[in-house]
Design a protein around this nucleic acid. Structure first.
Lengths: 166, 166
DNA sequence: CGTGAAACCGTCGCCCC
DNA sequence: GGGGCGACGGTTTCACG
């Protein structure tokens, strides 16, 4: 049962840093109810054990001139592990592809892409993605608007679960 | 032309904070080539003008016990603006739904969901999402694995564009 | 935008439970 | 094992040139 090695203070630290990753350590310590030194030690441990992968500013893509966001559903011709890995490696090299998830079901991968405008994306779509080796089909959907974009994990759900069956 | 109001130093600040949101201000100032006080003023301005929406620790969902990630494609019965807004409001209230994007094409919305296990998700799926008013169809795809998950925007693409046609 | 100064914070060693 | 106290050096954040 993962996440069980964390005590309530660790989970509170993760929840607070997920909500505000630039909080000072003393502020964080105050919120979780311990003093600064042990709080910092816990944060370092959480980082080293991979619970915290990093910290990122949440930059507004549209304000920066990335008007186009697209979800692309990709089907491959062959799905042996080597084929899957090869496609994933390609995706890591394409900067327009921000996320690449392998799925079950009829489609093999879903990609989230960001581009400055439609023509940039269509060039990428026709000359790179659809043209890539082993790609059988690509279906794209433009994002009209984004109603919710919460990073990370719903800690409320985790806490409800843990308080229910300890 | 959005993003044009930013000078190269502002864009460098955004790129650096996107890569490491917990960097100290003096380190950031060193990297962008100015001293600390004007660097902090620029960061504050970028925050106030909405270029930076926030800072978040990138928490490993699976290590925390969220084993299940799902993409859900949702079609509605009616798509008048009031119907669309009502569904978006529902999504904001569901903690398991982390992202909700309205799409063009045959499907109306794509949702990214996170859940501790399959049964939690299926309960949500059958009792909440599929049962919600105005929902016509829901197709779900489990995430098998994630090959890439880069937050934010490819600044390399932006810089290449700006240096090409100033 | 840079300099200087004051307040604050990150961090360490040590002691305590 | 983990938490608290005190102190040092670095950082944030002013006012001012």
């Amino acid at each position: 049962m993962p996440g069980a090695k964390l005590d309530p203070i660790d989970r509170k630290i993760l929840a607070e840093l997920q909500a505000d990753g630039r909080m000072t350590n003393v502020e964080l310590a105050k919120r979780v109810g311990i003093s600064a030194p042990p709080c910092l030690r816990r944060v370092r441990t959480l980082e080293e054990n991979g619970y915290i992968r990093g910290y990122h500013a949440d930059v507004d893509a549209r304000e920066l001139g990335f008007e186009v966001q697209v979800f692309a559903m990709v089907g491959l011709v062959k799905q042996a592990e080597a084929d899957l890995s090869a496609f994933e490696e390609r995706c890591r090299e394409w900067p327009l592809v921000r996320e690449c998830h392998m799925l079950n079901g009829e489609v093999d991968f879903i990609l989230k892409c960001a581009a400055p405008d439609l023509s940039t994306f269509q060039t990428f779509l026709t000359e790179q993605l659809t043209a890539a080796e082993n790609v059988a089909s690509v279906k794209t959907s433009l994002v009209i608007r984004c109603a919710k974009d919460e990073p990370g994990v719903p800690f409320e759900v985790l806490e409800a679960r843990l308080s229910q069956e300890p």
